[in-house]
Structure formats: C-alpha cells, structure tokens
Amino acid sequence: MNITFSGTRGLLLGGTCELALALAVSMIKSSLFPILTYRSNEGLHRIRHALPQYEKNYDVGYLNLGDRDSLQALFTHVGSDLDFLVDFAQGNYESLIAQADEAEVYRYCMENISFRAEILKTVGRTMLKKRKGRLVFVSSTAAQRPNPGQGLYAAGKLASEALYRTMGLEMGGRGITTVILRPGYVEAGRGRVYIEEQEGKVLQTVPIKRAVTQKEIAETILFLLSDSAASLNATVITMDGGLTHRK
C-alpha cells in the first residue's frame, strides 16, 4: 500500500505525551514535519529527550490549555502553513460527580471544552486559507463507557468529539475534514498506570486480552492523516480490541 499525504506540517497538541512522541517519530519517518506543543519546561525536555536524532525535523511551541495568549503566540509562531492537527490534549480530573469541586468543574470545562472550541476556530480559519486540512481528535472509550470518577473526563471528551464532528460537517466542502479516534486501554501514560494498578486484571475484559500498543495508535493516526483516509470524515473510530462492544 502506497501511503501519500496532502501536506507536511502537523500540529500535535499535547505533544509531550507518549503517544504524541511516538506519532512524531512516525511522522518524521514519513517525511512529515510535526510541531509539538508543551506547557512546561519538563514537557519540553521530554520532547528533546525523545527525539534527539531528529532535531531539525520537528518544531515545538508553547500552549497551555485555557491560556488564550499562549494560543495566539503559538499561531504567530506556526503561521498559516498548517496541514494537519492531531489533538492529544486533555486535562485530567478524577472525581465522583457528586464530590467534584465546583470551581474545578468550571475550570475543567473551560480548559478542555471552551478553549478547544477556540483552538478549532483558529485552526479552521488558518486551514480555510488553503482550503485544505485534516484534523484528528484522540478521544477515549471513556467517552462511551466511563468508569466511576471519569465523569468530567468523559464529558470533556464527548463535548470535544461533538466539536470535531460538527467541524467536519461544516468544512468538509472546503477540504477540511475531521476524524475521531477512541483508543481503549493503551500501553502508555494514564492507561499504563491504570493497568498496572489493576495488576493487569482489566485486560481480561478486553477480547484480544491485551492493551493497544503505542505503535498501533501511531500508525493508525498516520493512516488517518493520509490521503487514503480522506473520506473518513466527521466520524468516530473505536480502537479498543473489542472492549466496548462486549456485554
């Protein structure tokens, strides 16, 4: 299969997470140019540490969810030459709904929903100038089946999915399309921590009896960015080994 891409420059929001770093490597190997966002010096160091041999093949930009000045500065830096967006950004706040701190709830929704709408507005208007763009939102199966304590996380993911889906409907005719990927248990980040906390028992509920790998996620997103996947628009793809489809 010959995978081709319409464009080269891709912005990776939440660029310091393991999945984003894995994707960045895959993109670079496919001659794409990732721009990874970070929100702390520690995150910036993580990027530098993960991609030492590729320092001329990627860029970085500061973005802090909820910080509108950082968004403006990021796009001043990125400019109008942007072909792809892959959105891994998501704050974490675990609490039972009836225990959640009110101020934290408002802050969480502002950072993870309202601010994302502003990001999409900025990205959409940037891509509209070229009438071309591809956006991938990395959601979670928690959007469909949250565990107790994941109410806000699930709400943030579902609301963000709605933003991406609708944008694909609105702008598909102008060459700007969206797709959402919902991974299940993943061998990375919070997923790995959770699996370890549960001593692997949770994987017994997955029909394939294992977690989704970072490599699988990175390669799937790369495919979703390719020309071959262009007709996958305004829709959700679940990648969970069958987890959410069993009784």
Binding site: R125, L128, K129, E170, M171, G173, R174
Partner: peptide
C-alpha cells in the same frame, strides 16, 4: 454561512 466564514477570513487576510 460557510461562504461568509471564508469571506471573513479573506477580509482579515
């Protein structure tokens, strides 16, 4: 509406 959106972007530019 999508035409107006493009128009706004073009005017800004």
């Amino acid at each position: 509406s999508i035409d107006l959106l493009e128009l706004a972007v073009a005017i800004n530019s």
